[in-house]
Design a protein around this nucleic acid. Sequence first.
DNA 1: TCCATGACGAACC
DNA 2: CGGTTCGCCATGG
Length: 108
Amino acid sequence: MDSLYQKIYTKVSEIPQGSVTSYGIIARAVDLANGARTVGWALQKLPPDSNVPWYRVVNKDGYLTILHPIVNASTQKRLLEQEGIILTKQNNLWRVESPHWHKYQDSR
DNA sequence: TCCATGACGAACC
DNA sequence: CGGTTCGCCATGG
């Protein structure tokens, strides 16, 4: 059986290129109804050399709310733009223009 | 064991 | 309708 974090990473890895999803959606996909913050915690713990597409996870409004000092919002913005995703500066934060949300069939 | 801390989200003013 | 407050939950001290 996978650990909670392992399940989270697996779900994140399922997000197709060019799409994004929110912390809350991932949380529900791993049976944590209100564990959005926990998902953020798990992603922060990802090793730098990981191949998990953590940058495809944004908050429910499409904003990049990452707080990591090294791998910051600018890094995430660059990676998203490489996939053709358009970002605009709003409320002093980068935001995905017209998010194509990736949903999960069930989970529950 | 209790308390504080987030890469959040929804409910309240 | 928007800014603020309050839950949530796994971790770490």
